[in-house]
């Protein structure tokens, strides 16, 4: 080969085409790249798809029957009334809000406290064990939580507080708080971990105690991540379905006390969708609740994302 080349200097020009040609691997690579790109944007397609399809099913109702003022101000959710069905979602919104609020009162202090303990105080094996335990707690299915509310918590609340019904805001709130706390703990601990160790070392070198370091250095630096953790916890509580379906007592009313039964937005869809005829007003109304839920959780997640992005920019 080499001899040939020396005899014919022009060979170089032709031999490069022999080297530089597109082979099967080249085309395979391009093909795979297209497939992977489709996979890459699938999440966008699905989120759009969710919005499009729930809007499509709720659209007729929104156009013909939906009354924005009634939806947000009337506590009367009577979709099955044959004479005069009304679609006021206020009681459902209040139901969801009261349960989520109670859940956050339970979950925020405990999950932040646990995150600080696991992230800043605990060491070695204890720390690993606690992290794994928290991760396992986050995995308990919501229907099991609902069942716990229904069976164990219900009886406990009736005994402890001497109230007639144990299925109420308090029950669902505590259940939801216990459900959301492990996830919030994990996210909050990640936020604490993201604070560079140099910050801690610098503060400790100045003679600060561990707690002073946490309070003056770590917590302020991790602030955004902690806010995001709380927001995601709120989103989770807001969208939780099975546990609130089973533990709230399921009665449409504006509650007076924490021991009143309520009904949540999600639970309403879960309880009623099975009994509606496709295309009916009631069916459309439930999808409209879905649109509302979608938009609110979307905004919560977007805010959380923007808050987290705020950290990264710094």
């Amino acid at each position: 080969m080499a001899d040939q080349k020396q005899e014919q200097p022009m060979q170089a020009a032709t031999s490069i085409d022999a080297i530089d040609k597109r082979n099967l691997d080249w085309f395979l690579d391009k093909g795979v790249q297209v497939l992977i790109f489709i996979g890459g944007i699938s999440a966008i397609i699905f989120v759009l798809g969710i919005f499009v399809f729930i809007t499509k099913e709720g659209f007729d109702f929104v156009l013909s029957r939906f009354d924005l003022a009634e939806f947000f101000t009337s506590p009367n959710w009577r979709p099955t009334s044959s004479a005069n069905p009304t679609y006021g979602a206020l009681a459902l919104i209040v139901g969801t809000a009261s349960v989520t609020g109670t859940a956050m009162i339970v979950a925020i202090p405990f999950s932040l406290g646990a995150a600080i303990y696991i992230g800043e105080f605990a060491t070695g094996k204890t720390r690993e064990a606690l992290k794994i335990l928290v991760e396992l707690l986050a995995a308990i299915p919501s229907v099991v939580w609902g069942f716990i509310g229904l069976s164990i918590m219900n009886a406990l609340i009736i005994d402890l507080f001497n109230v007639p019904i144990g299925l109420n805001i308090f029950n669902a709130g505590v259940i939801l708080g216990l459900m959301a706390a492990p996830i919030m703990t994990t996210i909050a601990e990640d936020a604490l971990k993201a604070v560079p160790d140099e910050y801690r070392a610098a503060a400790e070198a100045m003679g600060a105690t561990r707690w002073q370091v946490i309070r003056k250095v770590v917590l302020p630096a991790a602030k955004n991540g902690l806010v995001a953790a709380v927001l995601l916890g709120v989103g989770r509580g807001f969208g939780e379905t099975m546990a609130v379906l089973m533990a709230t007592g399921h009665s449409v009313q504006i509650p007076d006390s924490i021991f009143d039964s309520v009904r949540a937005l999600t639970a309403t869809i879960a309880a009623e969708l099975g009994e509606t005829a496709v295309g009916s007003d009631h069916y459309g109304a439930l999808f409209t609740l879905g649109i509302f839920l979608f938009i609110v959780t979307f905004l919560i997640n977007l805010t959380a994302d923007l808050v987290v992005r705020g950290i990264k920019k710094k």
């Binding site: 080969m1 080349k5 031999s15 022999a18």
Partner: peptide, 10 residues
Amino acid sequence: TPGAQAASGN
């Protein structure tokens, strides 16, 4: 392979 070997002094 073609084009592979550099004959020194080429």
